[in-house]
Computed example of a mutant assay.
Amino acid sequence: MSKMHLVFGGRVKDPRTLDFADLSQIEVVGFFPDYASAEKAWRAAAQRTVDDAEMRFVVVHMHRLLEPDLEA
């Protein structure tokens, strides 16, 4: 299985958390085959919204969610 990563983000209720204000407004940046390309996309999205403290983007390791036993 490839090590798929998802980058997404949106407006959060509190900048210290990942409690998104409106899930219908989540921006999906994309799916990426490796962490390096996911991190590059995450940095670009985060930089684009750097002046908005309530915008947050994250990288999710999809392969860990889909097959958690592989990490053991």
Rank of each mutant, 00 (worst) to 15 (best):
residue 1 M to E: 14
residue 1 M to W: 12
residue 2 S to F: 14
residue 2 S to D: 15
residue 2 S to T: 14
residue 3 K to D: 15
residue 3 K to F: 14
residue 5 H to W: 05
residue 5 H to F: 09
residue 5 H to N: 05
residue 5 H to D: 02
residue 6 L to F: 06
residue 6 L to H: 08
residue 7 V to F: 03
residue 7 V to R: 04
residue 8 F to H: 08
residue 8 F to V: 05
residue 8 F to M: 06
residue 8 F to R: 06
residue 9 G to T: 01
residue 10 G to H: 01
residue 11 R to F: 01
residue 12 V to C: 05
residue 13 K to P: 09
residue 15 P to E: 12
residue 15 P to N: 13
residue 15 P to Y: 12
residue 17 T to P: 01
residue 17 T to C: 04
residue 18 L to R: 08
residue 19 D to L: 15
residue 19 D to S: 15
residue 19 D to P: 12
residue 19 D to K: 15
residue 19 D to Q: 15
residue 20 F to I: 05
residue 20 F to T: 07
residue 21 A to N: 03
residue 21 A to S: 05
residue 23 L to T: 11
residue 23 L to R: 10
residue 24 S to F: 11
residue 25 Q to A: 06
residue 26 I to L: 13
residue 26 I to W: 06
residue 26 I to N: 02
residue 27 E to I: 08
residue 27 E to V: 10
residue 28 V to K: 13
residue 28 V to T: 13
residue 28 V to F: 13
residue 28 V to Y: 13
residue 29 V to N: 03
residue 30 G to E: 02
residue 30 G to N: 03
residue 30 G to K: 04
residue 30 G to W: 03
residue 31 F to V: 03
residue 31 F to E: 03
residue 31 F to K: 04
residue 33 P to W: 01
residue 34 D to F: 01
residue 34 D to Y: 00
residue 35 Y to P: 00
residue 36 A to R: 02
residue 38 A to L: 11
residue 40 K to P: 13
residue 40 K to S: 15
residue 40 K to A: 15
residue 41 A to S: 07
residue 41 A to E: 05
residue 41 A to I: 07
residue 42 W to D: 11
residue 42 W to L: 14
residue 42 W to E: 12
residue 43 R to I: 11
residue 44 A to C: 01
residue 44 A to Q: 02
residue 44 A to I: 02
residue 45 A to K: 03
residue 45 A to Q: 02
residue 46 A to S: 15
residue 46 A to I: 07
residue 46 A to Q: 12
residue 47 Q to H: 08
residue 47 Q to A: 11
residue 47 Q to C: 07
residue 48 R to I: 00
residue 49 T to C: 09
residue 50 V to Q: 09
residue 50 V to M: 06
residue 50 V to K: 08
residue 50 V to D: 08
residue 51 D to S: 12
residue 51 D to W: 09
residue 52 D to F: 00
residue 52 D to T: 00
residue 53 A to T: 00
residue 54 E to L: 09
residue 54 E to V: 06
residue 54 E to R: 08
residue 55 M to K: 09
residue 55 M to C: 07
residue 55 M to F: 07
residue 56 R to M: 05
residue 56 R to K: 10
residue 56 R to A: 05
residue 57 F to I: 07
residue 58 V to P: 04
residue 58 V to M: 10
residue 58 V to Q: 10
residue 59 V to R: 04
residue 59 V to G: 03
residue 60 V to M: 08
residue 60 V to K: 07
residue 61 H to A: 12
residue 61 H to G: 06
residue 61 H to S: 10
residue 61 H to L: 09
residue 61 H to V: 05
residue 61 H to C: 07
residue 62 M to L: 07
residue 63 H to W: 14
residue 63 H to T: 08
residue 64 R to N: 09
residue 64 R to V: 09
residue 65 L to S: 13
residue 65 L to K: 13
residue 66 L to W: 06
residue 66 L to Q: 07
residue 67 E to G: 08
residue 67 E to L: 09
residue 67 E to V: 08
residue 68 P to Y: 05
residue 69 D to V: 11
residue 69 D to M: 10
residue 69 D to T: 10
residue 69 D to G: 08
residue 69 D to K: 10
residue 70 L to W: 14
residue 70 L to H: 12
residue 70 L to Y: 13
residue 71 E to D: 15
residue 72 A to K: 10
